[in-house]
């Protein structure tokens, strides 16, 4: 069952969240986001009633940590700086839900879970920088802190409607994890309302992200 679930997620039938994709859209906008990497598969579907916040459903499957999470997630745009040649954002993300243990003594156990974190990014048409952190508390099942950062560079400046390409490096830090530092070079491609990312981390694990906005 778990293998099947992982496979489905990995091929993109589930949708994951990308740390750099906007967690808040435009009024009336829906976004489906997927993240699949060496540690976790996630699905995040959110709706933005206004340009300042979004509300959505979040599913996470932490393979090594042996638990899953179903949560309602609230994202808030704290601040945006629109400049003539760049944009920067600060978001607050939080969620409340149920964690379910998937192995060992926690197998089948459930616990209330919550998470909170901050995300920020800056970009112009050539360079991209982002940082995000999160603390997750799931009582007897798990509790951990994570943070990640990205640097990106666009080899060309595509026009509106072109295929856009970014080369990025993502560094993740999970102090309590088995591998507390993970480095992932990746490529990001986007065109129209589709965004795709693929990469391979320093342990040879695949990263595959997909975002669709409508």
């Amino acid at each position: 069952m778990r293998t099947t679930l992982t496979l489905l997620l990995a091929i993109g039938l589930a949708i994951a969240e990308s740390i750099q994709a906007r967690p808040v859209s435009y009024p009336g906008g829906w976004t489906v986001m997927a993240m699949n990497d060496g540690s976790v598969n996630t699905l995040h579907v959110h709706y933005s009633p206004t340009a300042r916040y979004s509300l959505g459903y979040k599913f996470e499957y932490w393979r090594d940590r042996d638990f899953s999470l179903n949560a309602v997630q609230y994202n808030h745009l704290v601040q945006r700086w629109n400049k003539p040649e760049s944009q920067a954002n600060v978001y607050l993300k939080s969620g409340l839900g149920i964690a379910t243990g998937l192995a060992g003594t926690q197998d089948g156990e459930t616990n209330a879970a919550a998470f909170v974190g901050i995300a920020m990014d800056w970009e112009d048409r050539r360079f991209f920088v982002s940082y995000e952190n999160r603390y997750t508390e799931a009582g007897k099942i798990d509790a951990f802190f994570q943070q990640s950062a990205r640097l990106g560079w666009a080899p060309y400046e595509g026009d509106y409607g072109d295929l856009h390409t970014w080369l990025m490096v993502q560094v993740e830090h999970m102090p309590e994890g088995e591998h507390n530092i993970t480095v992932t070079p990746l490529i990001r491609l986007f065109k129209d309302v589709h965004l795709l990312e693929a990469g391979l981390n320093n342990r040879g694990e695949l990263l595959f992200n997909y975002v669709f906005r409508y």
Binding site: R22, R80, N82, E85, Q87, E123, R125, Y160, F190, L195
Partner: peptide
Amino acid sequence: NGLVCDFCARA
């Protein structure tokens, strides 16, 4: 101002 990303500009 802020118009730097094609994907975001779809909005």
